[in-house]
Amino acid sequence: MEQSLVTLDRQDALVILRLNRPQAYNSLSLQLLEALQAALIELADDESISVLVIAGTGRGFCSGHDLKEMRNAEDASLHQRIFSTCSAVMQQIIAMPMPVIAQVHGIATAAGCQLVASCDLAVAADTSRFATPGVNIGLFCSTPMVALSRAVQPKHAMEMLLLGDMISAQRAAEIGLINWCVPAADLESYTLEVANKIAAHSRATVRLGKQGFYQQLNQNVEDAYDNCSQRMVNNMQLEDCVEGIDAFVNKRHPEWQHR
């Protein structure tokens, strides 16, 4: 893992990954994308992690791709590597077995907004702002559009993509881009509160549920019900489910084994 570009903070079953290019608003250079990809691949295999938080250092969460790097490319091969790596990172976030929470401060624009939309949950400071402003510089935010159009209603996505304007955290919460808009001073504590609430559940159950959520989204209703019915059967066989039901019936707190 490239520590200079992505830092890791472990707090029991919670891991916080921080983008670490503060001098460039954590813009997603190819090196940063590759460091983030490597970190995600490594963490995906750690069964002791309950929740992953992605945050940014410095004055903002992420300003998107590094336009200076892309402008200085000698040919399209670098552009291809940047966009394919970025797409792989966003898909890796969805495929992570544990829930991933974006902790957003400052700006989250273009691919930074895409990163927020790709996470399972998002907490943002009330002073943060969001945009997919590529249209303003002649570069439509086509890859951010994939995540954005799956996180918000089509007309809200098109509004952001076609106007290219900044929207407030309050507006981002209204359209469903983020879950919570909180005072800036409370951003980290609120994010940790959400993360620890999730971490208090059975990891085995949460992981089974996250995987099922994204699988059924791409299925028709009949196939989704077949999928999730079998998933409920499989869930019932978990030791934690047996323990959880027994604890509920006997009015006690469950003791999770995470299996």
Rank of each mutant, 00 (worst) to 15 (best):
His79Thr: 15
Cys86Trp: 11
Met98Gln: 10
Ala73Thr: 02
Pro97Gly: 01
Ser50Leu: 00
Thr57Met: 03
Pro99Val: 12
Asn72Ile: 02
Pro97Arg: 03
Cys86Ala: 15
Ile93Met: 04
Ser87Trp: 13
Asp66Cys: 12
Met96Val: 11
Gly56Ala: 02
Val100Cys: 14
Val100Ser: 15
Ala95Lys: 10
His79Gln: 14
Val53Leu: 14
Gln80Cys: 12
Ile93Lys: 02
Gly60Asp: 09
Val51Leu: 02
Asp66Ala: 09
Val89Cys: 05
Gln92Pro: 02
Ile49Gln: 07
Ile93Gln: 00
Thr85Trp: 00
Met70Ala: 13
His65Ala: 14
Pro99Ala: 10
Ala95Gly: 03
Gln91Met: 04
Gln91Ala: 05
Ser63Leu: 10
Met70Lys: 14
Ala102Ile: 10
Phe83Val: 13
Arg59Cys: 03
Gln103Ser: 10
Asn72Ser: 10
Cys62Pro: 03
Ala76Lys: 13
Ala73Asn: 01
Gly64Phe: 02
Ala88Glu: 13
Ala95Thr: 06
Ser63Met: 09
Met70Arg: 13
His79Trp: 15
Asp66Met: 10
Asp75Thr: 07
Asp75Tyr: 04
Val51Glu: 04
Leu67Trp: 12
Ser63Glu: 08
Ala73Cys: 03
Gln92Leu: 10
Met90Thr: 01
Leu78Phe: 08
Ile94Val: 15
Val104Lys: 04
Ala76Leu: 09
